[in-house]
Amino acid sequence: MGPPDRLRGAGLFLMLLLLTTGVLAQSGQISQVTDSGVRNRMAAMNANNAALTVLGDMMGGRAVFDRARARDARRRLIATTGRIPALFRKAHADPLSNARPDIWSNWGDFKGLAKSAQRAARGLDSNSLPRLRKTLPRLVHSCLACHRAYRKDMR
């Protein structure tokens, strides 16, 4: 891995860290959430985070690339990102929710960002480490774009 690849890997690691920090903070809160809709959203985001962590660790050299594990993480990301619009369709509320109310007043934009994340998840190439390194950043950028706009603690 040459200098540009290392820099790209380090940048992606920092972006994954931003995503996972927020999700890990909410993972301990799920049991305290009273609204089932919010609980379901949080569980889905945690599932995305777990799959992204597997792929990010492989990409960053913290774990050995394992094609079967990478393909499984990709499948989970495709499934979960595809459920995002349905999970957020209703404006469920809970004091522990990190969803901004802007989601429902800007539904078209939110839904577009969610669909972009699913396209990026489908575009992940988990057949080899070099291919994963080329395709994972697009998904991370898609997730961060939505979180920056519609997650309370990302602004």
Rank of each mutant, 00 (worst) to 15 (best):
A70V: 01
R76I: 00
M42R: 08
V23M: 08
A149I: 05
D5C: 06
R100A: 14
Q32T: 06
A91P: 03
D102M: 06
L16S: 05
R62T: 05
R151Q: 15
T80W: 06
T80D: 14
D57C: 05
L7D: 14
A93D: 09
P137A: 06
R41F: 02
L113D: 10
H92W: 10
R76G: 04
A43V: 08
S27I: 02
R75A: 15
L77E: 01
S116N: 15
Y150T: 04
G60D: 13
D102Y: 07
V64N: 08
Q26K: 12
C143S: 11
L124F: 01
T80V: 10
A120D: 07
R155V: 12
D94I: 00
H141Q: 13
K115P: 02
R122L: 09
R155K: 13
G11N: 11
M154C: 08
D153H: 11
K152S: 08
N127E: 13
C143F: 12
F88P: 07
L19M: 11
S142P: 05
M1S: 09
G2H: 07
L18D: 12
P130G: 09
V140K: 04
I84H: 12
R76P: 00
L16R: 03
A91R: 09
A145K: 13
I78Q: 10
R75K: 13
P3S: 09
T53K: 09
A51I: 01
L24S: 10
L16C: 06
L113E: 10
T135M: 03
F110D: 08
T135K: 04
A121C: 01
V23T: 10
D57P: 00
V38I: 07
D125P: 02
S142H: 03
D57H: 09
P137F: 02
A47C: 01
A91F: 07
A44E: 07
S126H: 01
M45T: 06
M1L: 07
D125Q: 09
L132Y: 05
S116T: 15
N106C: 03
A47E: 15
R155L: 14
S36Q: 14
G123Q: 03
F110S: 12
S36N: 11
G56R: 01
A79Q: 14
G123E: 04
R151T: 13
K90T: 12
V140R: 06
D153I: 13
P95H: 04
T34Q: 15
G82S: 04
P101D: 15
T21S: 09
G61A: 03
T135C: 01
S128Q: 09
T81H: 14
L24K: 15
S27W: 05
D5F: 11
G37N: 04
M45W: 12
H92L: 00
L14D: 10
L113C: 01
L136P: 00
L18W: 13
L77H: 02
L24N: 14
T135D: 03
P3V: 11
R148E: 10
L16Y: 04
A51P: 00
R131Y: 05
N48I: 13
K152R: 12
K115E: 15
A44K: 07
R39S: 12
S116K: 15
L96T: 01
